[in-house]
Computed example of a mutant assay.
Amino acid sequence: MFRDVLLTTAAGLCLLSSAALASPTCTKEPQEKWLSEETMKQKIAEMGFKNIKVFKKTTSGCYEIYGYNKDGKKAEVYFNPVTGEIVENNVD
């Protein structure tokens, strides 16, 4: 009985932690409709993000960066690759 409770609790915690680590869904549009990486990088720079260490496509339909915002704070940002709009902005 106690073992079953422990296993259920552990499984629930694993699901919660994996959900917290998941990136947002930015679009379901096909990649043919996405802004090019070069265009997106230019838009990101115009928004004031700099020193971009990582720029990548996610499996959930986003462009994602790790860099610094215009205030010099570390930022992890997810962008809609069709519109270029920020979907999620995590700043340290």
Rank of each mutant, 00 (worst) to 15 (best):
M1Y: 12
M1Q: 11
M1N: 14
F2L: 13
V5M: 13
L7S: 14
T9K: 06
T9V: 09
A11K: 05
C14I: 15
C14Y: 06
C14F: 15
L15W: 08
L16I: 07
S17E: 13
S18P: 08
S18T: 15
S18K: 10
A19W: 13
A20P: 05
L21Q: 04
P24I: 06
T25A: 11
T25R: 13
T27S: 06
K28E: 14
K28M: 12
E29I: 09
E29W: 03
P30C: 05
E32H: 01
K33C: 14
K33M: 13
W34G: 00
W34Y: 10
W34F: 07
L35K: 09
L35A: 13
S36V: 03
E37Q: 09
T39P: 11
M40T: 02
K43A: 15
K43W: 10
I44K: 01
E46V: 12
M47Y: 13
K50R: 10
K50V: 08
I52P: 06
I52K: 04
K53P: 04
V54R: 15
V54K: 15
F55R: 10
K56Q: 13
K56D: 07
K56I: 08
T58M: 04
G61C: 02
G61N: 04
G61F: 00
E64V: 00
E64C: 02
I65N: 00
I65K: 00
Y66N: 15
Y66W: 07
G67A: 06
G67T: 01
G67M: 00
Y68E: 15
N69C: 07
K70A: 09
G72H: 06
G72F: 07
G72D: 03
G72K: 12
K73F: 09
K73I: 10
K74H: 14
K74Y: 11
K74G: 04
A75P: 04
A75N: 08
Y78I: 02
Y78T: 02
F79G: 01
N80F: 01
N80V: 06
N80G: 01
N80R: 02
P81E: 02
P81V: 02
T83S: 06
G84K: 03
V87E: 05
V87C: 02
V87R: 02
N89R: 11
N89W: 05
N90M: 09
N90L: 10
V91K: 09
D92I: 02
D92K: 11
D92Y: 09
D92P: 05
D92S: 12
